[in-house]
Amino acid sequence: MTVLGIETSTKTCAVALVHDGDLVAEYRHKQARIHAEILAGLVDKLMVTSGVNWSELQGIGVSSGPGSYTGLRIGMSLAKGLAFAHSLPIAGIPTTSAIARSLIGLYDRFTVVLPSRKGEIYVAAYKSEADELRTIENAQALLLTDFSSWAGGVAYVAGPGVSALQAAHIDGIKVIPEQFWQIGALNVAAIAAEKFAEGKADDLDSLEPNYVKPFYTTAKI
């Protein structure tokens, strides 16, 4: 199965092709506010250099959020347009889950953190069990000052929002080195391929980014 992945939820704009679980090719460009200018070109470059025809694809995965409102809209719009044009199934993949997939088998319990507006972050908690990833807490918006009480103790953290926790001098965090996780389209495509293999896909007309409306909780992980 060959699947195209599109990631635009952060400053990194990325596209990737995965075939039967293996990476065929991936292109990334890390620069804010230029996703609209470069995304379509990156997809074209990916398809040409990989030698894969649109007729050979079995689906498209796209980051669904949370993340940059503008970035998510750009990625979702292009992905839906391509899925419609080429009659392909589509799957929206949570940004936090795509990052978390890199940590399967490396850490038992951990939290993925994404930047939000000033003083806030997006968080989602996961547990790695054998070769599987289980969601403990779905993505939600949280005040930086509430993170420690929400986590309920020492928390292993990963993701581009970790720097906000460090800058705010939040206690009880253990930072997972960036070399162990990535922001890119590889995991978006890989998770989408797993969904398609199970016969699951999102409805093209109703699929929208998950911006995650802010709410605050003291739930323990």
Score class of each variant (00 low, 15 high):
residue 64 S to K: 13
residue 189 A to F: 03
residue 76 M to T: 14
residue 59 G to T: 03
residue 132 E to Y: 08
residue 45 K to D: 15
residue 40 A to D: 08
residue 44 D to N: 09
residue 213 K to I: 10
residue 21 G to C: 12
residue 156 Y to T: 11
residue 67 G to V: 01
residue 201 A to N: 08
residue 72 L to Q: 06
residue 92 G to S: 11
residue 205 D to K: 00
residue 125 A to F: 01
residue 16 A to G: 02
residue 206 S to G: 01
residue 189 A to V: 05
residue 64 S to D: 11
residue 25 A to H: 10
residue 158 A to S: 07
residue 112 V to S: 09
residue 110 F to A: 06
residue 169 H to W: 06
residue 17 L to C: 03
residue 12 T to Y: 06
residue 198 E to T: 04
residue 73 R to F: 11
residue 97 S to P: 10
residue 187 N to P: 03
residue 92 G to W: 01
residue 24 V to N: 04
residue 120 E to K: 05
residue 141 A to Y: 06
residue 65 G to Y: 02
residue 29 H to R: 14
residue 19 H to A: 14
residue 101 R to W: 09
residue 69 Y to T: 05
residue 158 A to H: 03
residue 38 I to Q: 08
residue 146 D to R: 11
residue 135 T to K: 12
residue 114 L to R: 04
residue 175 V to S: 05
residue 192 A to D: 01
residue 75 G to N: 05
residue 6 I to L: 12
residue 212 V to M: 10
residue 59 G to S: 08
residue 186 L to G: 00
residue 196 F to N: 01
residue 44 D to A: 14
residue 117 R to S: 07
residue 132 E to L: 09
residue 23 L to M: 15
residue 155 A to W: 00
residue 200 K to A: 11
residue 205 D to C: 09
residue 28 R to T: 09
residue 82 L to F: 01
residue 152 G to P: 10
residue 110 F to G: 02
residue 86 H to Q: 15
residue 198 E to Q: 15
residue 200 K to M: 12
residue 33 R to Q: 14
residue 136 I to P: 01
residue 122 Y to I: 03
residue 59 G to I: 02
residue 66 P to I: 07
residue 127 K to M: 07
residue 65 G to M: 07
residue 126 Y to H: 02
residue 94 P to R: 10
residue 71 G to E: 09
residue 8 T to F: 12
residue 123 V to S: 08
residue 163 S to R: 14
residue 162 V to I: 07
residue 212 V to C: 10
residue 105 G to F: 04
residue 11 K to A: 15
